[in-house]
Amino acid sequence: SSGGSSILDRAVIEHNLLSASKLYNNITFEELGALLEIPAAKAEKIASQMITEGRMNGFIDQIDGIVHFETR
């Protein structure tokens, strides 16, 4: 797709992000992006959206560029 990722790509990214949230206590956007094979800024945006929508527990430290995952 030309304008970003398809629905399937997005679903795969979100699935992998949720998997990462179970493996890590926290991770930088750079590391997360590398893990998900997407730019760091996109990793931040998707993580932020999932947390806001209540689909993933955690919070974002924008100063240090880190996602902190919280286990249920």
Score class of each variant (00 low, 15 high):
S1V: 13
S1E: 13
S1H: 12
S1C: 07
S1T: 13
S1N: 14
S2H: 14
S2K: 07
S2E: 13
S2G: 12
S2N: 14
S2Y: 05
G3N: 13
G3I: 13
G3R: 03
G3W: 07
G3P: 13
G3D: 12
G4H: 13
G4W: 05
G4L: 09
G4M: 10
S5A: 12
S5L: 11
S5Y: 04
S5C: 07
S5K: 05
S5M: 13
S5P: 14
S6F: 10
S6A: 11
S6R: 03
S6E: 11
S6T: 11
S6D: 12
I7R: 08
I7F: 13
I7V: 13
I7D: 14
L8C: 06
L8D: 13
L8G: 11
L8T: 11
L8F: 14
L8K: 11
D9T: 06
D9W: 06
D9Y: 05
D9G: 05
D9K: 06
R10C: 06
R10P: 09
R10T: 13
R10D: 15
A11T: 11
A11W: 13
A11S: 08
A11R: 09
A11Q: 13
A11G: 09
V12Q: 13
V12C: 07
V12E: 12
V12R: 14
V12S: 10
V12D: 09
V12M: 09
I13G: 02
I13K: 03
I13M: 07
I13F: 05
E14V: 06
E14L: 05
E14H: 04
E14Q: 04
E14F: 04
H15Q: 14
H15G: 09
H15C: 07
H15F: 12
H15W: 10
H15M: 13
N16Q: 10
N16E: 08
N16L: 14
N16C: 06
N16I: 14
N16H: 11
N16K: 15
L17Q: 01
L17R: 01
L17I: 14
L18V: 07
L18M: 08
L18C: 06
L18S: 04
L18G: 03
L18D: 03
L18R: 06
L18H: 06
L18I: 11
L18W: 07
L18N: 04
S19P: 01
S19I: 14
S19N: 14
S19F: 08
S19T: 11
S19G: 10
S19Y: 10
A20N: 05
A20S: 05
A20R: 03
S21Y: 04
S21R: 03
S21E: 04
S21F: 05
S21N: 03
S21T: 06
S21V: 08
S21I: 08
S21C: 04
K22I: 08
K22F: 09
K22Y: 09
K22D: 05
K22W: 08
K22P: 02
L23Q: 09
L23R: 11
Y24Q: 04
Y24K: 04
Y24C: 04
N25S: 13
N25W: 08
N25M: 13
N26S: 15
N26V: 11
I27V: 07
I27Q: 03
I27F: 05
T28Y: 04
T28M: 03
T28L: 03
F29V: 06
F29P: 01
F29W: 08
F29D: 00
F29Q: 01
F29G: 01
F29K: 02
E30G: 07
E31C: 07
E31T: 06
E31S: 07
E31M: 10
L32N: 00
L32Y: 00
G33W: 03
G33P: 01
G33C: 03
G33E: 04
A34M: 11
A34R: 14
L35K: 03
L35H: 04
L36P: 00
L36M: 05
L36R: 00
L36N: 01
E37G: 15
E37R: 15
E37F: 10
E37H: 15
E37T: 08
I38M: 06
I38W: 03
I38C: 04
I38F: 01
I38T: 02
I38Y: 01
I38L: 08
I38H: 01
P39K: 05
P39G: 08
P39I: 04
P39T: 13
P39W: 03
A40F: 05
A40P: 11
A40L: 05
A40H: 05
A40W: 12
A40K: 08
A41N: 10
A41L: 09
A41R: 09
A41T: 10
A41E: 14
A41W: 14
K42T: 15
K42C: 06
K42Q: 15
K42H: 15
A43P: 00
A43T: 03
A43M: 05
A43H: 01
A43N: 01
A43L: 09
E44K: 10
E44L: 15
E44Y: 14
E44V: 15
E44D: 02
K45Y: 14
I46S: 01
I46P: 00
I46R: 00
I46T: 03
I46H: 04
I46Y: 09
I46V: 08
A47I: 10
A47S: 05
A47F: 05
A47Q: 01
A47V: 12
A47L: 09
A47R: 00
A47E: 00
S48W: 13
S48R: 10
Q49F: 05
Q49D: 14
M50P: 00
M50Y: 03
M50S: 01
M50F: 05
I51V: 05
I51K: 01
I51C: 03
T52S: 14
T52Y: 10
T52E: 15
E53K: 03
E53R: 03
E53I: 05
G54N: 07
G54E: 05
G54P: 00
G54W: 03
G54Y: 04
R55Q: 07
R55E: 03
R55L: 09
R55S: 06
R55I: 09
R55V: 08
M56R: 00
M56E: 02
M56C: 03
M56N: 02
N57Y: 10
N57I: 10
N57M: 09
N57T: 08
N57P: 11
G58P: 00
F59K: 08
F59G: 03
F59R: 12
F59N: 05
F59P: 00
I60S: 01
I60F: 03
I60L: 05
I60W: 02
D61L: 05
D61N: 11
D61A: 05
D61I: 05
Q62S: 14
Q62K: 14
Q62W: 15
Q62P: 13
Q62D: 09
Q62H: 14
Q62G: 07
I63C: 07
I63N: 09
I63A: 11
D64C: 09
D64E: 15
G65M: 08
G65D: 03
I66D: 02
I66E: 05
I66N: 05
I66F: 07
I66P: 01
I66Y: 06
V67F: 04
V67M: 10
V67W: 03
V67S: 02
V67T: 01
V67L: 15
H68W: 13
H68L: 04
H68S: 06
H68V: 09
H68M: 07
H68Y: 15
H68R: 07
H68P: 00
H68D: 04
F69H: 01
F69E: 02
F69K: 00
F69Q: 01
F69T: 02
F69N: 01
F69C: 03
E70S: 10
E70H: 12
E70N: 13
E70G: 12
E70C: 12
E70L: 10
E70F: 11
T71A: 11
T71N: 14
T71D: 12
R72Q: 13
R72T: 11
R72N: 13
R72V: 13
R72E: 12
R72A: 12
R72C: 12
